[in-house]
Computed example of a mutant assay.
Amino acid sequence: MTTGILDYESDAIVQLMSIAEDDWTEKDLKDALQRAIMLEVSTIAPYATALWSITDADSGKPVAQTIRDIIFDEMWHFGLVCNMLTSIGGTVVLTDPATVPKYPGELPGGVNPGLVVYLSGLSRDSAKLFSDIEKPENPLAFAADGNTIGAFYQRIANVFPKYAHLLSGQRQVSTSPGGKREMIEMKTIDDVLRAIRIIQTQGEGTSASPEDPSGGGPSRLAHYYAFKEIAEGRKLVFNDMTRKWEFTGDAVPLPDTSPVAKVPGGGWPRQGDPNSPDQSTAKLLNDFNKEYSDMLRALEQAWAGAPNAISTAIAMMGAMRGSAQQIAGVKLPADPRFRYGPEWLLVQ
């Protein structure tokens, strides 16, 4: 297997999934973990852009709280996979231009082929997109299709024991993103398999229940079903008559939001376009991109032997929230019904 690591837009995960488990090499496992890291990073921008478009001052209301909890979970998953990679001698790569997420675009490695992930404000449509990102192989409420994130993690879980002798516990980060989320240090294969199970069930639930059984976060439903409730506008309930889970419960109202438009590929053109930002708006966009880039650099440093850099990364995430909310307050010149959204571009 000769897939390069630095190729966000490749179909390398599909290629890895086509290799028999017994034929996976140490390099394949490290390659798979790097791609899993890229997958986890790829979800943060669309989820956070939607969350930060909410203008309701009561951030504890159900929909906002649900999205916030899921973002914390995704940050947790990211950290767990980084610990897996460094503990077997791999290096976390986040700031090479080829590794950073591209929006709009498909998920890295060919997962969920045909699904185009974009950045926009919160809406029923964006919530449906998020549920599609998290879709299990066999959802309890809908038919599934395509390669899924959960199936990819299962392949990693099946292969990892073959290379358990490489686990060293080196370059681990133990800082938790919050709540009951335990940042597991990967010292044994049991640590690894427990972490993978948390990632799978928090995203997808189990084959018997849509609930998250991990105990890692305050949300009861796994991510797929939590987002699907927002998309459908109804709570998921078990129908005793049909013996099926159905989205027929109480209404799930959307909070007040700023109507953030879909961010164009490569960001908002700085000139020559009807929606080119003015100087002050361009500065807001550029400041956000710098904060995002600084956060990625701090995360990279944290898993390169400087674990205290995680505090810098967390601080940068707070700065990004404030910048994104300022950006979302600026109307588009060509269509003032909509607002700008942050670009999430890497600044070298």
Rank of each mutant, 00 (worst) to 15 (best):
M1E: 10
M1A: 09
L6Y: 12
Y8S: 04
A12I: 01
L16T: 04
E26Q: 04
E26N: 03
A32L: 07
L33S: 07
I37Q: 11
I37R: 09
V41H: 11
A45H: 10
P46D: 14
A57C: 02
G60V: 05
V63S: 02
Q65F: 11
T66C: 09
D69L: 05
H77C: 06
L80C: 08
C82F: 03
N83K: 01
S87H: 06
G90H: 00
T91V: 05
T91K: 11
V92C: 09
A98L: 06
A98E: 06
V100W: 04
Y103F: 12
G105L: 06
E106S: 02
G109E: 05
V111W: 09
V111H: 11
L119N: 14
D125I: 10
F130E: 05
N147Q: 15
Q154T: 08
A157K: 07
F160Q: 12
P161S: 08
G178M: 10
G178C: 06
G179H: 09
T188M: 12
V192S: 13
R194H: 15
A195S: 14
A195Q: 14
I199S: 15
T201R: 12
Q202F: 06
G203E: 02
G205V: 01
T206I: 07
P210E: 03
D212Q: 04
D212S: 03
P218Q: 15
R220I: 01
K228S: 06
E229Y: 05
E229I: 02
I230P: 12
E232R: 07
R234C: 10
K235D: 05
M241H: 14
T248G: 13
V252M: 05
D256F: 04
T257K: 14
K262R: 15
P264K: 15
W268F: 09
G272V: 01
P274D: 10
N275R: 07
N275C: 04
S276W: 04
A282D: 10
L284Q: 03
L285Y: 09
N286M: 06
F288Y: 05
N289P: 04
E291T: 00
E291M: 02
E291F: 02
S293M: 00
S293F: 00
L296T: 01
E300M: 01
W303F: 03
G305A: 09
N308D: 11
A309D: 06
A309L: 03
T312M: 03
I314G: 08
M317T: 05
G318L: 01
G318K: 00
R321I: 09
I327R: 07
V330K: 06
K331H: 10
L332N: 13
L332D: 14
P333Q: 10
A334E: 14
R337M: 12
P342I: 07
L345I: 02
Q348F: 14
Q348H: 12
